[in-house]
Design a protein around this nucleic acid. Structure first.
Length: 291
DNA sequence: CATACGTGGAG
DNA sequence: TCTCCAAGTAT
């Protein structure tokens, strides 16, 4: 039997407080929803929205993107971050055209098989685009459940089986209700039960929240990792790719050498970009975005 | 299972 | 200024 103590109040809260995001419109296509989910991986909504608008205007269907060279996807991705996602989306488009008749597949297994689509994204697309019943367990939901149910400020660093079981146990039985519950609990985490300063005064489940009821005990365990960025290969890769993106065509090696003094790290980063398929080394010694 | 993988805004 | 973090995935 179904017992989700938060369901009714969270669904009501969502109805009144949900953001009006373009990929949530009733007429949003499965493709547009897949694009949004890939873009939203580790990237804030405010930065995704304009990128999504531009992307969907240029490539409204998988076939539109599949017809382009992958480098065009990388260029269009601009500074959204994690540019391999642009490559993934392009590969998704080609696979959807070649193996799924141009339509985004609706089964969780087929979605999971697409490049760059993991457990979360597969569940999100199956649920949000196709109204299926799947547990949605992203960083927002993990935080809400950690607080409301477990009574701790932050979820563990690595997702546990217990978290998955909990999320599944809270799933309403009817697929359409389950789909609304998934997006609603996620939205609650994004707008109210935030990482830094949760707005418990505005929270519809504050009276049932184990963490708040316990007096909001501070995070226990080891300090959370700071992902230092300055000086890393990631920064070098970012600068290298920016040169290629901002150039109209292939660039000479010296143009790339200019972005970083340390030659060993610079070459390593460039080699890695080539290995990842983000950069194409031409026969004449120049470099370009992939074709 | 821990680590690599971009970027920019908020506190 | 500097740390933290934002709808994760692949290896």
């Amino acid at each position: 039997m179904f017992d989700n103590p938060y369901s009714t109040t969270v669904l009501t809260w969502y109805q009144a407080n949900a953001r009006d995001l373009p990929w949530r419109r009733p007429d949003a296509s499965p493709w547009s929803i897949l694009v949004s989910e890939i873009m939203l991986q580790q990237t804030p909504v405010v930065r995704v929205r304009p990128a999504w608008e531009a992307w969907m205007e240029r490539w409204p269907t998988p076939a539109d993107l599949a017809a382009e060279p992958s480098g065009e996807a990388v260029r269009m991705w601009n500074r959204l971050g994690y540019p391999r996602r642009a490559l993934n989306l392009h590969a998704c488009a080609r696979e959807i055209v070649n193996r799924h008749g141009g339509q985004v597949p609706d089964s969780h297994a087929d979605l999971l098989a697409l490049p760059g689509v993991g457990p979360y994204t597969a569940a999100a697309v199956a649920s949000f685009a196709f109204g299926q019943r799947h547990a949605i367990l992203d960083t927002n939901v993990r935080r809400v459940l950690a607080r409301a149910d477990t009574g701790i400020e932050y979820p563990p660093k690595a997702q546990s089986k217990a978290e998955v079981r909990l999320a599944e146990s809270l799933l309403p039985p009817e697929p359409d209700v389950a789909a609304r519950w998934g997006v609603a609990i996620m939205e609650l985490g994004a707008l109210v039960c935030t990482a830094r300063s949760p707005a418990c005064a505005d929270c519809p489940i504050a009276d049932k929240c184990a963490w708040r009821l316990a007096g909001k005990p501070a995070h226990d365990g080891p300090p959370r990792r700071g992902q230092t960025y300055a000086g890393t290969d990631r920064q070098v890769r970012g600068r290298l790719l920016a040169v290629l993106r901002d150039a109209p065509g292939p660039v000479e090696k010296p143009a790339l050498d200019g972005v970083w003094d340390e030659p060993v790290q610079r070459e390593r980063a460039l080699d890695a970009l080539v290995a990842d398929g983000l950069v194409d080394p031409l026969d004449d010694g120049r470099y370009a975005l992939p074709s």
